[in-house]
Simulated scan of single mutants.
Amino acid sequence: MVVHGWEPFNVEPPPAALADAPLTPVEAFYSRNHGPVPSTDRDTWRLAVTGLVDRRLALSLSDLRRGFTTCTLAVTLQCAGNRRAGMTAIREIPGEDPWRDGATSTAEWTGVRLADVLGAARPTERAAHVAFEAADVSQLAEPPQPYGGSIPFAKAMGPEVLLAWAMNGRPLPAVHGGPLRVVVPGFIGARSVKWVRRVTVQAEPSDNYFQAVAYRLLPPGTDPDRAGPSDGLPLGPIALNCAILCPADGATVPSGRTMVRGYALAGEHRRVIRVDLSADGGASWQQANLAPPAGAYTWQLWHTDVMLPPGVDPELVARAWDDTGALQPESAAALWNPKGYANNSWPRAAIHTLSET
């Protein structure tokens, strides 16, 4: 794993670890945290459901298992800072981890639908947002506070949003949010709150630092240290994106026929319909083969063969379309922002081919 920090523990897999199968092994799944991984006693842990509800709840894991229908969904999670390294190459982004392409992973999540739990609490007519509070306390927040965030009530009531206790058929590891985490398909990973201990139905978005201040798309000239809740745009649905996983940027490969592999993700309720690859920096293109997704809320792996001449340094470039006809933007420079969020520009990989002997 590529380690960006030990505490908070922030790691991503090498690109090749994501290319072989539609589901990411637990050991290779990226981990993005904002504070120390909390220690939680599963036997005494309870989930509080409060706010604009007629019936407040305090639920144990056993209550969730016995009282609601269990659901398993394959879902891709993607950090808002995925591919930030492409932006730091244009202009420095102090204080932010230089995530590559690996802050994206896919797993099968097992738990209960958030909508079912909220239904049992009977939300009032004023319900407009659902906020989540975690057990970890982040010193990155101002002031230090438990991690949190929120999603619109309409999204929370969708059948795809889960309260999950298992990952790829195994109990949810502590580093990935055990005993229980939120899984919000199609939204940035920051909204899939780990170690969730409180769900609050409310009329306004969460005022938690990581909802109101941190995960916002700021204009290029903004000082992020001075930005407040009214600055920039709140991040929610994932933008159309793709990545080149093999060969990785900087790799040396034999000349001749070479298979190029990657992933593409549309986010929210969109799907990828086409991926193109160029082996000459964008001068010419060929359509890649798209693998079927593992589910309605997952990435699609893609591959194609290219012919590479010996002793050259070709630039591989990829681009994806979704089913609305949207195409990824070409340039990371046009997307640069002070936090390095949402780099969904065309991915590029400079490689070297061996000379014939």
Rank of each mutant, 00 (worst) to 15 (best):
63 D>M: 06
200 T>P: 10
72 T>P: 08
189 G>C: 09
182 V>C: 03
126 R>A: 15
146 P>F: 02
352 H>W: 07
78 Q>D: 08
320 A>W: 14
106 T>I: 10
315 E>C: 09
316 L>E: 09
191 R>N: 11
71 C>Y: 01
70 T>E: 15
116 D>H: 04
137 V>K: 05
312 V>H: 14
12 E>H: 09
196 V>P: 14
184 V>P: 11
290 L>P: 05
32 R>L: 03
11 V>P: 10
11 V>Y: 12
225 D>A: 04
261 R>C: 11
84 R>K: 12
254 P>Y: 02
290 L>D: 00
274 R>E: 14
212 A>M: 03
23 L>I: 06
21 A>V: 01
26 V>N: 07
190 A>E: 11
268 E>L: 13
181 R>T: 07
324 T>D: 12
132 F>N: 02
24 T>C: 06
85 A>H: 07
335 L>Q: 15
121 A>V: 05
341 Y>C: 00
110 T>Q: 07
219 P>I: 10
248 A>Q: 10
91 R>C: 05
291 A>K: 10
243 A>T: 07
35 G>Q: 05
98 P>L: 00
239 A>I: 06
38 P>M: 04
337 N>T: 09
308 L>C: 07
209 Y>C: 08
155 K>G: 04
205 P>I: 09
276 D>L: 06
76 T>E: 00
129 H>R: 02
153 F>Q: 07
298 T>I: 01
270 R>M: 06
321 W>L: 07
93 I>V: 12
80 A>P: 04
314 P>M: 07
320 A>T: 14
19 A>L: 06
256 G>Y: 03
104 T>H: 12
40 T>W: 06
152 P>G: 02
68 F>R: 04
201 V>M: 11
7 E>D: 15
16 A>W: 08
36 P>V: 09
347 P>K: 12
16 A>V: 05
214 A>R: 13
18 L>R: 02
279 A>G: 08
86 G>L: 02
238 I>V: 12
151 I>R: 03
33 N>C: 01
308 L>F: 13
8 P>F: 03
339 K>V: 03
353 T>Q: 03
166 A>T: 01
166 A>D: 10
319 R>C: 12
286 Q>R: 14
158 G>K: 09
148 G>I: 00
161 V>S: 00
17 A>K: 11
182 V>A: 03
33 N>D: 12
122 R>Q: 15
21 A>D: 14
185 P>K: 00
64 L>N: 11
298 T>N: 01
337 N>M: 03
103 A>D: 13
230 S>K: 15
74 A>K: 05
17 A>T: 08
244 I>G: 00
236 G>F: 10
200 T>V: 05
177 G>P: 12
251 A>S: 14
284 S>L: 08
89 A>S: 12
209 Y>V: 08
139 Q>R: 02
197 R>G: 04
35 G>K: 02
202 Q>H: 11
292 P>A: 06
84 R>S: 03
